[in-house]
Each structure stands twice: as C-alpha cells, then as structure tokens.
C-alpha cells in the first residue's frame, strides 16, 4: 500500500511542529523523502519500489471468438481509421502493415561507402518513409534529392519530425526498414553527392 496525498499531509502536520528539516522513510513498498525549504514550504520525492510480476498476454482473440463487427483486423491490430478514431494517428498500425513493402532496399552502389553522405536521425524515434500510411515513400534508392528535400519522418512522442537530405545527390542506400526504431544519430540513408560539373 503506497502513501496517499492525505497521508503525506498528515505527516507534514506532525513535522511542522518538530525541529527537523528532512524526513526519510523507506519500507518494502516505497521510499519517501520530505524536505523543508528555506521558506518553510515542503517538497516530497517518492519512489514506488518493487518489481511487478507481469502476466503474459492471452494468445489469440478474446474468448476464442473475435467480437463480431468490431472492425478489428485479423492481425489483431486496429486499422489506421480505427487508430484515427481513437484520436491518435501514429502511423504505427498502418505503417506496420506497410513495413513489408518497405524493406531496406539493396544498396544501389557496390562501391565502398567512401564519398557517400550520411543522413542521421536528429532525435530518437520511429522511422517512416512515407508522409502517411498508404501513400508512396518520400524517396527510394536512385531518387534525386536537394538539400531541402524531405526524405523521411522520425516520429517521437506523437510528433512528426521531417528529415531533409542536407545535400544534393541521389539516394544510394536506405538503411532502416519503414517503421523501424532509430536511435538519435543513427544513419538512416546514404546519399551519393553530386560530382563537380553534374547538374541536378
């Protein structure tokens, strides 16, 4: 049983009349630190302890039969429209279904990577090759790009961040599969920059 806000208030009432500025309390379930600030007001830091035991999810559909007419797809994921209706279009559902279409494409160039410009993830998140589910990807291997060409999206915390090529050239390699997770700074694509004298 963790402490409620009322419990903490009760403890504070006791503490207010005592000459102590800090209280540390630890049980098997929680850790509580109360500190008196110079102005007399209190702050608390609470930690709920203990490792939860997680039951595995039930395999298959509920009760052995799928809810009829619920619109739930055979794969068990909601369709993009359902996701939209739920107020959250994080491309995830549809993107996952599109993932098969967007396997990392083989490197067009067999040369060493020397001379290729790398496009890196500006922040960690999910890599999407298309602006929305069901539409063509921004670029494919062989696409011509300019510095301001949007080449992909990184989704972090429900926010879509466009990533631009940064250089002029052609897409030589797409490193990640659609809907794959990218760490900050991970290489997403490689671009063969324009040679001197080449025209875009």
């Amino acid at each position: 049983m963790e402490l409620t806000n009322d419990d903490v208030q009760d403890i504070l009432q006791v503490l207010d009349g005592l000459p102590y500025d800090e209280l540390h309390l630890e049980t098997a379930r929680f850790r509580l630190s109360l500190r008196r600030q110079p102005d007399g007001a209190w702050t608390q830091a609470t930690e709920v302890l203990g490792a939860p035991t997680v039951r595995p999810s039930a395999a298959g559909s509920p009760g052995g039969s799928r809810p009829s007419g619920s619109g739930v797809s055979p794969g068990g994921t909601v369709s993009p429209r359902d996701a939209a209706a739920a107020g959250l279009v994080t491309a995830g559902a549809a993107a996952a279904s599109l993932a098969d279409d967007y396997r990392p494409e083989p490197t067009a160039a067999t040369e060493a990577d020397d001379g290729l410009a790398e496009i890196r993830a500006p922040l960690l998140g999910t890599f999407y090759r298309a602006p929305r589910p069901g539409v063509p990807p921004f670029v494919s291997v062989g696409s011509t790009v300019r510095p301001d060409t949007v080449v992909c999206i990184i989704e972090t915390m429900k926010l879509m961040n466009s990533v631009t090529a940064g250089v002029s050239g052609t897409v030589a390699q797409i490193v990640l599969a659609n809907a794959q997770f990218a760490d900050q700074g991970a290489v997403l694509m490689r671009i063969r920059p324009l040679q001197d004298g080449e025209r875009p």
Partner: peptide, 24 residues
C-alpha cells in the same frame, strides 16, 4: 499487471483485440 503487447501503440494501447483479451 498483464502484458498488452509490444511498445508500438498500434500493437498495444490502440489494439482493441489485445485490450479485450487482456481483460478477459
């Protein structure tokens, strides 16, 4: 605690089937 699914919202917190299965 019951496992709902992978990290992706589409496969966990947005998955009607997974939520109903977990409740049952």
């Amino acid at each position: 605690v019951i496992r709902l699914g992978p990290v992706s919202p589409a496969e966990s917190y947005l998955n009607v089937d997974a939520v109903v299965s977990a409740a049952i």
